[in-house]
Design a protein around this nucleic acid. Structure first.
Lengths: 134, 134
DNA sequence: TATGTATTTAACCAATCAGTTATTTAACCG
DNA sequence: CGGTTAAATAACTGATTGGTTAAATACATA
């Protein structure tokens, strides 16, 4: 149990760095549900799941309420948005890379000399912003 | 026990879950550079930086080449894109949430509430799907 | 060949992680 | 009250992490 000296973003990425926790989030994206319900798909004990939930909660990725004996969990997307905002800074890097790939493919196809049936139809003009537009 | 070869996405998130490594990536986003250059801003030893680089390399976030004694590091954005693609699935969640917040604020402001004790009304129906406009 | 420079590897350490079983708390029901 | 259900906590364990210092490697140059 850590009293976080670590920053929020690190805690978020840390929480996402585990397939079980990502699966839990995937389930919670469909809607609020109980701990035992969340635990069902996994072969691990309840305390193990409980710990994963604590990690997610600590990262601000989920919140819990109370419904009789149950403690339903709810996904909190704001923390995910933080991660997305961080990635935003780097988006141009892979978009640029994809652009280059596209340029390459365009070049290759333009040069393609001996394709028997199809006439080399030019590729659609590449748009400068690929992927998600800003 | 989840031993052995963790998946790529976990490795990526794991690598991003450390401020030092994120700072290294931020530096590399500006361009390829040497290990000692990367190490300069940090108060840790060279081996420590070397280990961080190994983590980044293992996650596919950087590659290294050779230039005399130096091993210049280069950022590889493809792995970041994988993380972005994973987040993509959840984007609607926080966009929806922001919609609701926006609607809520709008409601509150429209009412120009005079008595503080009135409990906030339930959220009004929203009609437009907003967020990143396409 | 020897020497300096850039970086990695080895060996070690404390803290954290991801899991376990056993126990405890909390809320409901008859 | 006692019993059941849902979940959290305690205590333990082995593996991993993030750092250290000291030694080894790889390359360039004199």
């Amino acid at each position: 149990m850590q009293t976080a000296p670590t920053d929020r973003l690190s805690a978020t990425f840390q929480a996402l760095a585990d397939p079980t926790r990502r699966a839990i989030l995937a389930r919670l994206a469909l809607g609020e549900t109980s701990v035992s319900e969340l635990a069902k798909p996994f072969e691990m004990s309840m305390p193990a799941v409980s710990k994963h939930l604590k990690v997610l909660e600590h990262a601000g990725l989920i919140t819990r309420s109370r419904d009789a004996q149950m403690r339903p969990c709810k996904i909190e997307a704001a923390a995910l948005k933080q991660a997305d905002d961080w990635l935003e800074e780097y988006r141009r890097l892979w978009e640029q890379r994809l652009d280059r790939l596209e340029d390459y493919l365009q070049t290759v196809q333009a040069k393609a000399p001996r394709d028997k049936e199809t006439k080399a139809k030019p590729i659609k003009a590449k748009e400068k912003t690929r992927g998600r537009e800003k």
